[in-house]
């Protein structure tokens, strides 16, 4: 029973926000829809409902969102802005291997999307067998796995491991 809660909450929230109404009509349809959708979809989407309902993990997620949208994005934008504004255009582009430690697919995907959404780095491919991303890096400081991990992934992964792993 508990395992159906995460998707039901997601669907109900999306329905109400998208409809922009909290009339009894919408709350009734929202609840029925949330239950129905969750019954069908949960087994494909939720791997571990305890994790999805954990308050500690949720707080870590909020903290990560805050870190990502402010500090990480600011640092990445600053770096790219410097490159754009400098006369000599100091780029050193390369596609580098970045090894990851995450095992859970949600961690792997959240890390990959975090890398792609910050300017300067884009995940172009992923090798799940070797546990590594292939990342296009606008200013490749080094090509060694330790260097790329340290510079591109570490800050995201150590935080996201607390959310999903």
């Amino acid at each position: 029973m508990r395992k159906y809660i995460p998707i039901a909450v997601l669907v109900f929230t999306v329905y109400i926000v998208f409809s922009g109404s909290i009339s009894p009509y919408d709350i009734a349809i929202g609840i029925a829809l949330a239950i129905g959708t969750s019954l069908v979809v949960t087994k494909y989407v939720v791997q571990d409902s305890k994790k999805a309902l954990s308050l500690r993990r949720f707080i870590h997620l909020i903290a990560y969102a805050f870190y990502y949208l402010t500090i990480a994005e600011f640092k990445a934008h600053l770096m790219v802005t410097r490159i754009i504004l400098s006369k000599s255009m100091p780029v050193k582009p390369a596609i580098v291997r970045v090894p990851y430690r995450a095992k859970n697919e949600y961690t792997i995907v959240a890390c990959a999307n975090s890398i792609t959404n910050t300017p300067g780095t884009v995940v172009v491919d992923i090798d799940t067998e070797k546990s590594q991303y292939y990342v296009h890096w606008i200013y490749a400081v080094g090509l060694e796995p330790e260097v790329t991990y340290e510079n591109i992934l570490k800050d995201f992964e150590k935080r996201l491991l607390k959310v999903f792993e």
């Binding site: 998707i7 997601l10 669907v11 109900f12 999306v14 329905y15 998208f18 829809l33 959708t37 969750s38 979809v41 494909y44 989407v45 697919e105 949600y106 792997i108 995907v109 990959a112 999307n113 995940v123 491919d125 992923i126 799940t128």
Partner: peptide, 18 residues
């Protein structure tokens, strides 16, 4: 890739709601 698959899995219930 797994990236597209995971994001799509999450989008499907949202798609139904909308």
């Amino acid at each position: 890739s797994i990236i597209v698959k995971v994001v799509t899995k999450l989008l499907i219930p949202i798609n139904i709601a909308i």
